[in-house]
Simulated scan of single mutants.
Amino acid sequence: MCLKCHGTGRAQCMWCNGRGRRMQMELCQHCYGNGTESCQMCQNSNQQCDGCAGKGRVLTYMRLTVTWKNNVFEFITDQNSEFSSDLFRNVKGEKLVMDEQSKVSGITDFPDPTIIEVSQNALEQHWTRFSSCRVLRQRQSVERLPLTRVQYCWKEKQLSYFVYGTESKVFVQNYPKKCCCVVM
């Protein structure tokens, strides 16, 4: 359908602005007092629709984007100042507690009271921070991550390195020699 005349083939006269008269009394010579004239855009014929190419059907798609976001709270007890706790993110440990539900409750029965307190505080912070969001699932776990400090002497210097995670990864802060030696 023509957008100017809406399929009628007639559009408002551009000389008299649809009034049918010019200069108040004089009849419009262009539209003969009718106020409309033949539509110049479609010339009183159907136009091919750009949207459907004249087929009468328009194919449309709707896109729905769902974003799932995980919010993580981590706490590591017994942090050693020489060993960066960030290294624990890349290793696995032994799972001691695992709870996954739509809403978990804080840990109440655990030998270390620090873990109980941190669990309660973390859940309270989570509900305060995300109270306006739809929380689908919560998971709470406690892992034991092995960490061993190995002390050794090299060229009369006391040095150390760390073995951590169940994968037994090694971290050396100041390795004494830069070539020809590998710590296994």
Score class of each variant (00 low, 15 high):
Y61G: 03
Y61E: 13
L64P: 00
V66G: 00
T67S: 12
W68T: 12
V72C: 04
F75E: 04
Q79S: 08
N80I: 15
F83W: 09
S85D: 10
D86K: 14
L87H: 13
R89Q: 09
G93W: 07
E94A: 09
K95Q: 10
V97P: 02
M98H: 11
M98L: 15
M98R: 06
S102Y: 03
S102G: 13
S105W: 02
I107M: 04
I107R: 01
T108N: 11
P111F: 09
P111R: 07
P111Q: 04
D112Q: 10
D112M: 09
I116C: 02
E117K: 14
V118Y: 10
S119E: 02
N121R: 15
L123N: 01
E124I: 02
E124A: 13
Q125V: 03
H126A: 15
H126I: 14
R134D: 10
V135L: 04
V135K: 02
Q138V: 03
Q138A: 03
R139L: 13
R139W: 02
Q140A: 04
E143T: 11
P146D: 04
P146M: 08
L147M: 06
L147P: 01
L147E: 01
T148L: 10
T148M: 10
C153Y: 08
W154E: 12
K155W: 06
K157L: 06
S160Y: 14
S160R: 05
V163D: 02
T166R: 13
T166L: 12
S168K: 15
